[in-house]
Design a protein around this nucleic acid. Structure first.
Length: 591
RNA sequence: GGCCCCGUGGUGUAGCUGGCCUAACACGCCACCCUGUCAAGGUGGAGAUCGGCGGUUCGAAUCCGCUCGGGGUCGCCA
């Protein structure tokens, strides 16, 4: 292979095939760099050795595919290239065959010739030739292969579950597939194999594993695609400790084999409530401190109406000390910093500077000497700091200031590079109130066990019930989640009741699972980890599109294939469908 | 659905406080020269009317509006 030729091969005859990465034509003597996924090697075409091969080399252009036969030799002294692994040697070509020509490239293939993402996706097959993408694809392969290997060692059985399953209204929007044999009926692509893996537990599988493709018809993001891949696990007769240990083993070993870095295990556990309180996030970036402080008690009776009003309404005031923030201008704080807080629902962002041993800033005049002294003590304020505040409900104030914390971290370089802080966020709330209709909904899914201590609250104060659901978080990215499941009918009934589901409704939605649970379900729990995101993180990429061979754009299209495409009426008729006219193309209505 | 950023030859950029832009530079492409280069070099050449539409103006790549496309993000993602 091109990149694996070494000094040890000196004198050997080799046959190499690859792409022309670069050409340097001296009008007689010609050099071509030949590339395959292993790297580059310099080919020398000397008219005195082989005039025929040299004439081919003169014609060859970037990205032509060549097969050459030649002899490996040391480069003449002084002509070594220390920037290349194969820089000490070269291949003197005796014969050269053009396997394929290439038109002028629509984009460069070198890593430092990065084109606009639209162009990269349109010519994804060229983009994939880039060394970086080759590295990413192969690292992903190693990662997944090791997950399977370790899973096998740990007694897991890989089970394939269907990709055409019943559609359920819960959770994300389904991609639906019309049924030809059952006109008017549809299948859905799974958002996850959740129910099937639980059924496999009932089926005695004991330890289920799947590298599962999942689909969700929601808006795309840097870390979200329509279809993504998860490491899906389910285990019988286990509790959190065993599940955590399995995942720590599988992911740390796969991480090491794919990225060559070791991960310390076990990972710390952080209850959800603490994560929200300390970091203002359920997926905290714990690579740096600068935690939030609840200063509600200090400002309970203060003259600043925004604080006092929020507290009187049952809310809180959160504070963040920004060392060095004294240099922040009013324009910055009231511009982009405020915008960050507002994006996450805060009404505003209050701030103070500590300069020359005193507080400055527009809210200073509303705060008493005593209040400011307490603030100084509580946060350890020193000269040159800026203190940012949000006020409101605990959730909004903390979340917004948590976002400000991340903004500050990037602004002031708090984030240590090359560090990976994995942790478990545990004891997620079981329920949450839907702000739109005020109804109680399951945070994870309705089969999640409540925390054993909180069973009495299921009836009385459902929003305070903690669950046995947990997430893996690393560097502020949510990498996966899981839970222990409910298998006892009477417990399940209590949860459905809290969710406002009648037994009849539950039967309609999940009847097959409830039926299965009448025939001796083993206690079980599991986890699903987002492979795209983990590989993205391990490779230092900022988007999962960099670790997916053929991703979609943010608008959910594929520029390479020009899809999605319109569909012929006959094809629709066959599956019993009629499409609504496109909103823009319908007749204009009354204005 | 909201907010923010971007859109100039095949690619990447400059120009964008309006006229000197009949649009510049690098890479790539074409032709010729060149036997030790490795971001090879030299000479010459082709190639964009500045995403699209509309407006302001004597005059627009440069200002405004709409629109299309790409990216980021909030909502959404049990």
């Amino acid at each position: 292979m091109c990149g694996t030729v070494t000094r040890a091969d000196e004198g050997r005859r080799v046959i190499l095939a690859g792409w022309v990465n670069h050409r340097r034509d001296h009008g007689g003597l010609t050099f071509l760099d030949l590339r395959d996924h292993t790297g580059l090697v310099q080919l020398v075409f000397n008219p005195t050795h082989s005039g025929e091969a040299q004439r081919v080399a003169e014609r060859a252009r970037l990205e032509w595919v060549l097969r050459v036969e030649g002899t490996v030799g040391r480069r003449p002294p002084g002509n070594e290239n220390p920037n290349l692994p194969t820089g000490e040697i070269e291949v003197t070509v005796e014969s050269c065959e053009v396997l394929a020509q290439a038109d002028a490239m629509p984009m460069g293939v070198a890593d430092d010739a990065l084109a606009e993402e639209r162009v990269r996706l349109q010519y994804r097959y060229l983009d994939l030739r880039r060394p970086r993408m080759q590295r990413n694809l192969r690292a992903r392969h190693r990662f997944v292969k090791t997950l399977r290997d370790v899973g096998d060692e740990l007694g897991f059985t890989e089970i394939e579950t269907p990709t055409m399953i019943p559609s359920t209204p819960e959770g994300a929007r389904d991609f639906i597939v019309p049924s030809r044999l059952w006109p008017g009926h549809v299948w859905a692509l799974p958002q996850s194999p959740q129910l099937y893996k639980q059924l496999s537990m009932v089926g005695g599988v004991d330890r289920y594993l799947q590298i599962a493709r999942c689909w969700r018809d929601e808006d795309l993001r840097a870390d979200r695609q329509f279809e993504f891949t998860q490491l899906d696990l389910e285990m019988s007769f286990v509790d959190e400790d065993e599940i955590f240990e399995v995942l720590e083993t599988m992911i740390s070993r796969a991480w090491e084999s794919a990225f060559g870095m070791t991960l310390a295990t076990p990972w710390p556990r952080l209850p959800y409530a603490d994560a929200m309180r300390r970091y203002g996030s359920d997926k905290p970036d714990t690579r740096f401190g600068h935690e939030l402080t609840d200063v509600t008690a200090i400002f309970e009776h203060c003259q600043f109406r925004v604080f006092a009003g929020a507290i009187a309404a049952g809310g809180v005031v959160e504070a963040l000390r920004v060392p060095g923030g004294g240099e922040l201008t009013r324009g910055e704080l009231e511009g982009e910093w405020l915008q960050v807080a507002r994006t996450y629902g805060a009404q505003g962002l209050a701030y103070l500077w500590r300069r020359g041993g005193d507080y400055e800033g527009s809210i200073t005049k509303f705060l008493s000497v005593s209040e400011l002294a307490q603030l100084t003590a509580a946060l350890g304020v020193v000269d040159g700091d800026c203190i940012c505040f949000t006020a409101g409900t605990q959730r909004v104030a903390a979340t917004a200031l948590g976002a400000v914390r991340m903004h500050a971290a990037r602004r002031f370089g708090w984030i240590p590079e090359g560090q990976f802080d994995f942790l478990w966020v545990t004891e997620f709330p079981l329920f949450e109130k839907d702000p739109d209709d005020g109804r109680i909904k399951a945070v994870h899914h309705p089969f999640t066990q409540p925390h054993p201590d909180d069973w009495p609250l299921v009836r009385t104060a459902p929003e305070r019930v903690r669950s046995r659901a947990y997430d893996i978080v690393c560097n502020g990215v949510e990498l996966g989640s899981g839970s222990l499941r409910i298998t006892r009918p009477e417990q399940q009934a209590a949860i459905f009741e809290a969710l406002g589901l009648t037994l009849a409704e539950a039967e309609t939605k999940f009847g097959f699972l409830l039926t299965a649970f009448r025939y001796g379900p083993p206690p079980h729990g599991g986890f699903a980890a987002g492979i795209d995101r983990i590989v993205m993180l391990g490779l230092g990429e900022n988007s999962i599109r960099e670790v997916i061979a053929f991703p979609k754009t943010q608008t959910g299209a594929d520029p390479m294939t020009g899809s999605p495409t319109p569909v012929a009426p006959e094809q629709l008729a066959e599956v019993g469908l009629r499409l609504a006219p496109k909103a823009g193309s319908s007749a204009p209505g009354p204005t």
